[in-house]
């Protein structure tokens, strides 16, 4: 799969829900729902979602 165009500067230490590793990588700003970002665990290789609401606002 080619690299996604958007690699937002987001938390990279999200814990994998499958194996609890923090060695994870953000792949995309939208997962299968608007509430989650798509991550991948670099240890167990599995994909997972992370709920992204952190109350950050765009620059104004």
């Amino acid at each position: 799969m080619s690299a996604p165009q958007q690699q937002p500067d987001q938390p990279q230490d999200i814990e994998c829900p499958w194996c609890d590793s923090k060695n994870t990588e953000l792949l995309s700003a939208y997962g299968p729902s608007v509430a989650e970002m798509q991550y991948k665990c670099l240890d167990c290789g599995q994909g997972f979602g992370w709920m992204k609401w952190e109350r950050r606002l765009p620059e104004a």
């Binding site: 939208y30 299968p32 729902s33 798509q38 599995q46």
Partner: peptide, 20 residues
């Protein structure tokens, strides 16, 4: 929109496994 997001999101999610 939600259906498309969900299905393509699942294509991507399963693609992570398929890639291996």
């Amino acid at each position: 929109c939600a259906t498309i997001l969900d299905e393509v999101g699942h294509a991507y999610h399963q693609g992570i496994l398929a890639e291996q």
